[in-house]
Amino acid sequence: MPEAVAGRRRRRRRLSFNLYLWLGGGLLGLFVLLALFGPAIAPYDTAAQDLFALMQPPSAEHLLGTDNVGRDILSRIIVGTRYTLSIALVATLAAGLGGVALGAVAGYFGGLTDRIVTGFVDLLLTVPNLVLAIAIAAAVGASATGLTVAITASFIPPIARLMRARVIELKEEDFVSAAVTTGMSHTRILLRHVLPNASTVIVIEMSLNAGQAVLVGSALGFLGLGVQPPAPEWGAMLGASREFYAIAPHLVVAPGIAISLLVLAFNLTGDGLRDHFDPGIQR
């Protein structure tokens, strides 16, 4: 590529402000801060009940109103960030690790290993995400840990498939063959030459998965299979307030919006990363 063209492209890329990445990243940063310092920021104690102020609509005192037992909804949302975010992040990372390992081994070594791994992954894929998560949550028990395990298990297959495809592609690259000719071991080639070249695809997929993980986690919480009340987990909050949504809609709206915003933050980040790494897709 001529120097001038490369230079122009680089400049254009720097100039074109990646709106998605900035918005998503900013929003995500905000949530991370809430998760870290939630209890310090929250105006009220999340468990403090005010039986004289049940299901109050938003006011200056309670910005998002109070719930059916008179707890401050804003405080509960703020503190609850910690549950949702950590479940989504841990599950996504664990699924990423598991999926990358499985996919890399299957794709790189092929043969019988590949058939076994692919068979297992395909089997998992035939079960819908949520159903699988429910089954695992039921088996492991309804808790934050159970929820994390469930989401992790249901998110391994897509990552494994993606990784396998990418590794099969990369295996044919000259620099991998070149590494073989230098007498390097397969483990080393896989770690040093194959994985780094697959990382972009995986990072993008994982950030999009994190959004999905928030949704699945909240759904399980809503169904009572996740974090148990009175802990202020958003899904559980939604679940607990569904009986009152006709008389006090703000009980449902607040955690709903929180969930949507967090999903949006992850998805925007994912899209932003994709545009950043692969500008060809943009237009």
């Binding site: 000259d174 620099f175 063959s177 070149a178 073989v180 000719t181 230098t182 007498g183 070249n197």
Partner: peptide, 18 residues
């Protein structure tokens, strides 16, 4: 391989890890 016998590939554009 690599120590006593070296191999040079055809494609310099693709035989290095980007």
């Amino acid at each position: 391989r690599g120590a006593r016998i070296g191999l040079i590939f055809q494609e310099p554009m693709t035989s290095l890890n980007p």
